[in-house]
Design a protein around this nucleic acid. Structure first.
Length: 314
DNA sequence: CACCTTACCTGATGGC
DNA sequence: TGCCATCAGGTAAGGT
């Protein structure tokens, strides 16, 4: 399942292959993948044809491509937004490539030497989708997210999404204030994309393990060093995954050019129920990673490194 | 209003 | 062999 590092890999691929090119054709084999686009597929298509992709920007797991309004202007007022959801892929391919089983949308671009002409959105579980929307100013006046030369704007539907730990404009002070003001557990807050974006179930567990903190730690008891520890851990885990080319745990995720993502086998907590805690093992202990059901999901943690707090809050 | 639960989806997997 | 239940999980809508 793509999380932030995987989406960043996709963003870089789109920046390389798609930015600067104009859309000449749109095909939507499955309209269910056109989400949050109230005016329907025809409007979606009509708002794309003839526009140019000016940039490729990412905040958390939201990706967007600011579009030229017309061939004569460079002012980005609208954007094509993509969210990969659980199983989405964006592939840059030749139109001659056989259609994938779960092909949902095809975009055709002006020809360019050494670059395929088609961008395909493929999504098995349809948790992801595409839509066209307007760009609105960011809350803090900073750039919308990660991307070269991007403007201080963000898609209206993503305006509530917080900056992610890899964002140069990420504000640790603001995060600390928000966490302290909340009456909830730490993992629940980490998964709330409005508080901090880009952290899914896998990286939440990995970050908590790295920071030696329990998922049910009440956020209003966090001290400043605690907030720094968990966010540094999240940043570190995601930066390392990004360096490795993105992690992935099933064959659904491939990068923008169709090459399979790096399979991380360096996970310390996620999916390791019953296996030894590697940090405890170094100290000669034989602690085993436990799995709890939490938020209708699995949470993996070490019972020794990450003891459950007495005032646990789910 | 803040917080928590549920629905949306499909394919893989396991039990009987 | 087939059938049903369960699991995976990001997001937003609905409920308390």
């Amino acid at each position: 399942m793509p999380e932030l590092p995987e989406v960043e890999v996709v963003r870089r691929g789109l920046e390389r292959w798609i930015a600067g090119r104009s859309i000449t054709g749109v095909s939507v084999p499955d309209p269910r993948s056109i989400r949050r686009h109230g005016l329907g597929v025809e409007d979606f298509t009509g708002n794309l044809i003839g526009t140019t992709v000016l940039d490729v920007v990412r905040r958390g797991k939201f990706l967007w491509m600011p579009l030229s309004d017309a061939p004569s202007t460079r002012e980005p007022h609208t954007a094509l937004v993509a969210h990969l959801g659980m199983s989405g892929q964006l592939l840059v391919e030749s139109p001659e490539q056989p259609y994938e089983k779960h092909l949902k949308v095809r975009l055709t671009f002006t020809p360019r030497e050494d670059a395929p002409e088609e961008l395909r959105f493929i999504d098995q579980r349809i948790f992801g989708g595409l839509f066209v929307t307007s760009l609105v100013p960011t809350d803090d006046g900073g750039p919308g997210g990660c991307g070269l030369g991007n403007q201080p704007t963000i898609p209206a539907e993503a305006a509530h999404i917080g900056r992610d730990p890899l964002d140069p404009h990420f504000d640790v002070d603001a995060l600390h204030r928000r966490l302290r003001a909340r009456k909830t557990g730490l993992k629940r807050a980490l998964l709330d994309q409005g508080v901090v974006s880009g952290i899914g179930n896998i990286y939440a567990d990995e970050s908590l393990w790295a920071a030696k903190m329990h998922y049910a730690r009440p956020t209003d008891t966090l001290r400043r060093p605690d907030t720094e520890r968990i966010i540094d851990a999240a940043r570190d885990v995601m930066a390392r995954a990004l360096e490795a080319g993105g992690t992935s745990f099933d064959s659904l995720y491939v990068n923008v050019n169709g090459a399979s993502g790096y399979f991380s086998r360096s996970l310390n907590a996620y999916g390791r129920e019953g296996e030894p805690c590697l940090r405890c093992a170094q100290l000669g202990l034989s602690t085993k990673i436990r799995r709890d059901t939490f938020m209708n999901r699995s949470s993996y943690s070490c019972p020794v490194c990450q003891p459950k707090p007495r005032n646990a809050r789910l």
